[in-house]
Design a protein around this nucleic acid. Structure first.
Lengths: 368, 368
DNA sequence: CTGAAAGCGCTTACAG
DNA sequence: CTGAAAGCGCTTACAG
């Protein structure tokens, strides 16, 4: 504690109204501000003794760096990052943005949002982004897989990051989960619960995760020695409406599956609604599971067992990654695209349970 | 590239890699940076001639101010604003945050998030917020109506803003829509469509909007000379599950309403699921409407007719308002709390339609 | 390994 | 109404 020339030990009054600065810490610790900066950023060489002294001061004064000031130095107008999205109301996007904006404010990066409605408006949206001087653009799904968009952006010398694409490209950075493994994990979970008659609802064939999730399901079934009945694999579109139709197809016949694995939550929620309508008790008579863990998964009842994508963490990671790339480029290095794989988790909620003892027959039986 | 003393008029190359600064603009316009600052901030006295010259330069150079730098001056560590929330997964919150974070990054304000799980943890959450030196706290629902929380915050000398409360308090600023008028407008819409037999699902009695939405419904019915059948007013909890139960109550009896007005979207979505299960066609045989316009409203099928709350705009407004208050306080003024009323809009989608010609009877009739 | 100097882009007083 | 000076909190070179 003893420090500096004077013998006084009182820290600069923290209640004095103004925020604690790096200089307060420096004075308290009896070192130069520069040293505090180094400790805070944890990069350069600092002796252990010094480091400890500074850290104690930081703690004592409850110092936290002023982020606005940090990015002010060095012509370091933090990179501008654009987000080009197409589906505005999706809760998925809100969550991505939540993480993205949080991270960009932490990094002092300016985030610019643009919406592209149709394919036609894409050119215009890209132009607006470019006009605003973005150095990089994040593409959430489904634009993450749009080659034309990527090419336009690359032509303008702008970095591109594909968010939640299922098939990373060689020339575009990506942040994603492993859709294949996620689907396989969910399928194994169903099998462990005793299900063998499992219906699957595929997603929009245009989206890259669709095929991989399906393959994950098929391979896990096969690995367990279970057959995949083609009648129980139904094409969906990732929309609630398509889930409605798919579930009706799966649940109406006399012989129906004991579990439905819908390849996203919206479709699973729809399957739940259909089951409810048919008086099929979930999870007692039917297990329904989804994928993504968007808010709807915990809105419906019973809540959906699903594969949790760390969506807002992925938004954060996307911003970090692209900012790093931009900085590297500015510094003269030109590393290739990087690909970050995030961990998914299987979250078990009320919509899944053990397979019913005997294969259920017609739904009438259950009716009150 | 050529600039400064030489006679060339070329603007400082905008592609030169670094961002356009206030000094570039000043040089281009031949004025002091100070003057540019004044024009940009539009506050002080600037002659029209000067203003135009500067504005032209700004446009020519496509200048936009560096926000990080702006809040660096004057010990002006932009106010810190906390958000204390209780329900993390709600898509509602994501949208609030979207607006809030956007505005705070625009204002250079630091946003601090804290979650309070139970009533027990509230004290701890408030303390953490205070430790982080917040000057104000935004309370999204349902905390917006928690007197204990507000009192704790006030005791610490921190500004409080209640977001989306239905009943603004005299000592706390608020941003909200008029729940009463929203419900009344929706009810009138149903009546115009020819509905007179309307079921209503109330929300959680603990939340302030619940009562006002109900009153708006009742008063609009009464004003149109229509009776409110107590059997068709069902208590809900704002949850999907409670909507399921409520809709079953409303739709099972032989005589059922031709429209259901659920006082939020989650419950309306549930009503849709129940109707679907009972083979009641929406909107042909039954109209279902909600309130809030959260993402689920446009996820389900048919999409919900609902009252749109400009949620992210409310998040933005909340940050603006509380930052203004904090600044006013710092400047020595102490204006009372302000209350901002935002406009709701009635959005008509597929779930509502004209009342069926004759009162429908038992659902069996409709079955294939 | 540590520090004194200079500067980031902008704005707040202070002079004209 | 306009501008030259000083400073915000932090960091990047540059010296020890």
């Amino acid at each position: 504690m003893a420090k500096g020339k004077t013998k006084v030990e009182t820290p600069p009054a923290p209640e004095s109204g103004r925020a604690v600065t790096i200089h307060d810490v420096a004075r308290y610790a009896g070192v130069a501000s520069m040293t505090v900066s180094r400790v805070v950023n944890g990069n350069s060489y600092v002796s252990d003794a010094m480091r400890e002294r500074v850290q104690a001061a930081i703690k004592a004064l409850n110092y936290s760096p002023n982020l606005a000031a940090r990015n002010t130095r060095a012509g370091n107008t933090g990179p501008r990052v654009g987000v080009l999205y197409s589906n505005p109301s999706a809760s998925y996007l809100s969550e991505v943005m939540l993480g993205g904006i949080e991270q960009s404010s932490r990094l002092g990066t300016q985030l610019v949002l643009e919406r592209s409605t149709g394919l036609a408006s894409q050119k215009a949206a890209v132009r607006r982004l470019l006009d605003q001087g973005v150095d990089g653009v994040i593409l959430p799904p489904p634009l993450c897989d749009s080659r034309p968009t990527i090419n336009m952006l690359h032509a303008a010398g702008v970095k591109v990051l594909a968010l939640a694409t299922a098939r990373p490209m060689h020339d575009v950075s990506s942040v994603r989960i492993d859709d294949y493994q996620g689907a396989a994990a969910m399928t194994r979970h169903l099998i462990e619960l005793g299900h063998s008659r499992i219906g699957f609802v595929k997603g929009d064939p245009q989206h890259t995760p669709t095929q991989l999730r399906y393959e994950g399901f098929v391979d896990a079934m096969t690995a367990a020695g279970l057959p995949v009945d083609p009648d129980w694999v139904v094409q969906g579109q990732f929309t609630y409406r398509s889930g409605l139709a798919a579930a009706e197809l799966l649940l109406s016949p006399d012989e129906r599956p004991t579990a439905i694995f819908a390849s996203n939550d919206d479709m699973a929620a729809a399957a739940l609604a259909v089951a409810h309508g048919l008086q099929i008790a979930v999870p007692e008579a039917l297990t329904v599971v989804g994928f993504d863990d968007t808010p709807i998964a915990s809105t419906v009842w019973p809540e959906l067992t699903t594969i949790h994508q760390p969506i807002s963490a992925m938004g954060r990671a996307a911003v970090s990654l692209i900012v790093d790339e931009i900085k590297a480029e500015r510094a003269g290095n030109a590393p290739g695209p990087t690909h970050q794989l995030m961990k998914f988790t299987l979250v078990k909620r009320g919509s899944s349970g053990p397979a019913p003892a005997k294969a259920p027959s017609r739904r009438r039986a259950a009716k009150a």
